[in-house]
Write a protein that binds this DNA or RNA. Structure first.
Lengths: 250, 250
DNA sequence: GTAGGACCTGACGTGGCGTCAGGATCAAGC
DNA sequence: GCTTGATCCTGACGCCACGTCAGGTCCTAC
């Protein structure tokens, strides 16, 4: 049985030919992405030359970074609907751009971390301390890159973002002063400070202003690191804790 | 019970504070990466200020792209063993370099694909046909980048690789001639051709020469695309199929 | 006839969580 | 003191693209 004429390959041969594993072909079979045109009487898969070409297309599309579902879409799309395919590839292109940029950012960050700690041969704690600072610093200053905030940014304009950065710097200096002086949490100046701090956060967040400031320093991913941290991270940590106490007192 | 003094956070508060989800904290708890210092009588987790700092360290390390296991390693390493941490970060750095380069390559490839098919508004088939060619072309010509072959490359030297590329180009031309002319698979010239083809592959592969040539055109990942495909992919496919028949006949 | 490879299906594992499900607990208002 | 809605708990399954056994069947060459 099964005499279609022409070359037929077993699953192992096809796998070797196309540089995939047998398990991969089993997987594609199971999810219905790619099945052998035939089976022997005992159930062994037999692949035709068309199958080889089909698998090769799948691997080519996978090599572009598409998911198996996307591959299925492309191959299932009608032959003259190149528009949808172009759109999918464009989306993939921008996803790759983001990936590359993210990778570059992390490279710079790690490189800076290694450079920063290079000569002093510090302990792991110092390492992480620097890292914390870098991360915290970035997290705030690249706030404007978060997609969630895209709309509010548009409303405020880039000038407002720059202004917020400067304001944040001044606020941190002010807050560190209160922490250093161990100012009581019910001091009017501190309460006013906390209000302004939260206010800065709430200009960029739509959620609860009480938590936004602290939250803004940690959330999500982080972009390019071009500057160094002007404040020691431990102090920033203290400041955040201090602010938390102020809020609890208020 | 549980009166450690000082600020305590619930899991939801900590999650909001650090920009993670509650589920993430549950996960860290389950795998033993990060647990609350305390629990209330009814089992609710209570996090201390130290916990906040600990979690922040974890998130900072995660933000560098480290896995949870690597984070665990770093945090468990003895405080003055900065060497291990530096090594891990260096490894991460090179991994990121590879990632970025891979992303860039795919960007170029997709961009070239979109450019190539931009004006003609072709069908999906044409699209994939171009892609197949690009992929196949790359797969062979970047053979030398495969880690498996690193040693043999070192033995042969870069000149041999360049030579192999030229040889491959000539071989493809020759083979396409046989296919076009529909030369019988037992023709002495074809047999000699197949022998040379396999020989080229076996210079770079350590495994079975019979399959190496075809395999070399598909396996693994692919690097930069700087040139365009000089042969139509369908023809290359035919050539590979033809070679398979030659081998089966021989 | 038999040995050892290649093949089959089914099931579980990977990482880093997301997403219910079903129930217990907490905080605030009445 | 009671209700109500938010928050908390544990357990379990889902995701993606397969890897890795396990236990059994089949094919091929000697």
């Amino acid at each position: 049985m099964l005499e279609t004429g022409g070359q037929l390959w077993s699953i192992g041969e096809l796998a070797a030919l196309c540089g995939v594993t047998v398990r991969t072909l089993h997987h594609y079979d199971r999810i219905g992405l790619f099945r052998a045109t035939g089976r022997t009487g005992s159930g062994h898969r037999r692949y035709s030359e068309d199958d080889v070409r089909h698998l090769y297309r799948i691997r080519a599309l996978r090599a572009l970074g598409l998911s198996l579902e996307q591959v299925r879409e492309v191959l299932a799309s009608s032959p003259d609907d190149a528009g949808a395919v172009r759109q999918l590839l464009s989306a993939q292109l921008s996803a790759l751009r983001n990936q590359a940029e993210q990778a570059r950012r992390l490279q710079h960050q790690i490189q800076a971390l290694l450079d920063n700690t290079g000569s002093t041969m510090p302990g792991v704690d110092h390492f992480i301390s620097i890292l914390e600072g870098m991360t915290m610093y970035e997290k705030y200053f690249t706030e404007e890159q978060r997609t969630e905030l895209a709309q509010r940014r548009a409303e405020l304009g880039p000038a407002a973002v720059d202004d917020a950065k400067a304001t944040f710097a001044r606020l941190v200096e002010e807050g560190l002063g209160y922490v250093s002086a161990n100012t009581p949490v019910d001091d009017p100046a501190v309460l006013d400070f906390a209000r302004r701090w939260d206010g800065l956060g709430s200009r960029f967040h739509s959620n609860d202003a009480t938590k936004s400031a602290a939250r803004s320093m940690w959330q999500d991913n982080s972009p390019e690191l071009s500057a160094r941290l002007p404040w020691p991270p431990d102090r920033l940590q203290e400041l955040v804790t201090y602010l938390q106490r102020v809020r609890d007192a208020g």
